[in-house]
Every structure is written in C-alpha cells, then in structure tokens.
C-alpha cells in the first residue's frame, strides 16, 4: 500500500504545482488581458467599466493595416529564411553520428544562454556604418562607401532569423529523426532521381516538422518589438511595437489588449490549420492502413 501511495502523492503534488503555476502566471494574466480588452480606456484611471467592443473595431482601422501588412511580410521572410537555412542543417544533423549530433545541437543552444537583448545589441554593432561588415567590404574593395545596413528592414530580419532559427531547427530534427530511411532506399532502388526522392518522399514525410517550425517562428516574429526597436530604428514596424506603444506611450490599455487578443486568435487559427494539414498529410502520404 505504502509503496504505491507515495509516488501517487508525488504525482499529485507535481500536477497541483504545475496547474497552480500555469493558472497563476498564464491563465490569470490572459484572462486579465481579455477583460481589459473589452473595457473603456480612460486617461485618469487607465480603464473604466462600461464594456465595449470598440477596441476590437479599432484593430481594423486603416492606419494599422500598413503595420499589419509589414509585420506579415517581415515575419514571412524571416520564416522562409529560417526554413531555407534550418532544413539542410537539420538534414545534415540527422545524418551525423549521435555524438556529433549532440555536440552540434549543444553549440546551437549555447548562444541562448546569453540574453537575447545583448545579442541584438551585438548585431547592431556588427551592422553599423563602422561595423565589421562594412569595414570588411570596404577593405576588400567590394564597396567604396559604407552601405546602410543598420536601421533597415534587412537588419530587423537578420536579427529575427538569428533569434528564431533554433525554433525552426528543433522540430525539423525531430521530423528527420523519425524518418524511415528505408523509404529513401526504396526510392533509389526504383530509380527515382534525387529531386524526385526529395519532392515525393522527404518533403511529405518531414512536412509536420516544417509546418511546426514555421508556426513557432512566424508568430513570435510579429511580436518581437525590441528587435525592431533596436535594429529597425524604433519606427513601428511590427505589431509588437504597436502593442508596446499602446501600453507605454499612448496608455490605451484596452486597445493594446484587444490587439494582443487578436494576435492570440490568429495563432489559434494557424494552429487549427496546422492540425488539419497534419491530418491531411498523414492521410495522404503516410503509412496509414489505407495506403498499405
């Protein structure tokens, strides 16, 4: 009796702790954001009672359409670049010996021990007019006068890719690790060219990893206001900047909250699409009973 009761208690303890933690620091703040998003803004008291949905209507005002489009574009490019770099990297990693894989993964994670803000400041110095990139290009004679790299969209994308790349690589590695190598061998034996093997075997089988990676890169990219502030010159480039300004400068908390909720809904929508796509892919290309 006793032997079994204590692990059970331990489990209860862990579950209670986790739930309390999540409830206090995830659920409660989100409920507060949702509540604030339907209150009325007020200069004196920040928010006052009458419940209103005007804040949500404001999200769709034309002046934010530009920021929205720009955010989508920047996040889209960031995701694409992450995928183009992350996919081959994950492939190579998956083909290495287990020791090598651990070492390389470790090396990829090491920079994460440094605060991302500090790493972004480092990029700022590298991209400056007197930074390493410009100095090198001038030294080698590629350019005569420094090019504007810092405070551009380009700089922001570099920063976002740098910060978010591991989030793309990790799910991809998981996908490659699950991959059944014999399927590629079969393709080879049956005379499929490398291109066809990639399109018809590799890509469909790693699609869940691709989609998962894209999702966890795309959405955070829209919110990383500090990257746009530091590398983009604090011109409101991302939705995160608009939200930050609502809270700190304009002090329209209900509108800032409504914008946050809107982003959360967007994320939820994308997750649903992911789920649907995942089911579809497994149905079509996977090893379902039907296909066998």
């Amino acid at each position: 009796m006793n032997r079994y009761s204590s692990p059970l208690n331990f489990r209860r303890l862990v579950i209670t702790l986790t739930l309390t933690w999540l409830g206090l620091f995830v659920l409660l703040p989100h409920l507060m954001v949702i509540l604030t998003s339907v209150l009325t803004p007020d200069a004196e008291h920040l928010v006052i009672w009458p419940i209103t949905f005007d804040n949500y209507l404001k999200v769709f005002e034309p002046i934010y359409a530009g920021v929205f489009w720009n955010s989508l574009l920047m996040s889209g490019i960031t995701t694409l670049v992450c995928l183009l770099i992350g996919y081959p990297f994950a492939y190579l990693l998956a083909n290495m010996s287990p020791t090598m894989r651990v070492v390389l993964l470790f090396l990829m994670v090491v920079p994460f021990w440094t605060n991302s803000l500090i790493r972004i400041y480092a990029i700022k110095m590298i991209l400056g007019k007197k930074g390493i990139v410009n100095s090198f290009l001038m030294f080698t004679g590629v350019i005569d006068s420094p090019v504007q790299l810092i405070y551009t969209d380009f700089a922001v994308i570099i920063g976002l890719v740098y910060i978010l790349l591991p989030f793309m690589v990790l799910p991809l590695i998981a996908s490659f690790a699950k991959l059944d190598r014999s399927l590629i061998e079969v393709g080879k034996d049956l005379g499929a060219s490398p291109f066809y093997r990639f399109i018809y075997i590799l890509l469909p089988l790693t699609a869940p990893g691709i989609i998962a990676g894209c999702l966890i890169v795309f959405l955070p990219a829209m919110g990383m206001f500090y990257v746009a502030d530091i590398l983009g010159g604090a011109k409101s480039l991302l939705l995160g900047n608009v939200i930050k300004n609502q809270f700190l400068v304009v002090r329209d908390w209900p509108f800032g909250s409504a914008f946050s909720v809107f982003l959360i809904l967007l994320m939820a929508g994308l997750l649903i699409i992911y789920n649907k796509a995942n089911n579809y892919i497994q149905h079509k290309g996977g090893l379902d009973d039907e296909n066998l």
């Binding site: 110095m125 400056g128 007019k129 007197k130 930074g131 420094p146 504007q148 810092i150 405070y151 010159g233 604090a234 011109k235």
Partner: peptide, 18 residues
C-alpha cells in the same frame, strides 16, 4: 529623412557613425 528614433542614448548612433 528619418533613419532612427532614439531616446535611450541618442549620442550612440552619432558616435557609431550611423
């Protein structure tokens, strides 16, 4: 004409040559 907004330490971009 605006390249950057900065109220943190506006001298930094001048010193960095940006």
């Amino acid at each position: 004409n605006v390249l950057v907004f900065n109220s943190d330490a506006p001298r930094e971009p001048y010193l960095a040559g940006d």
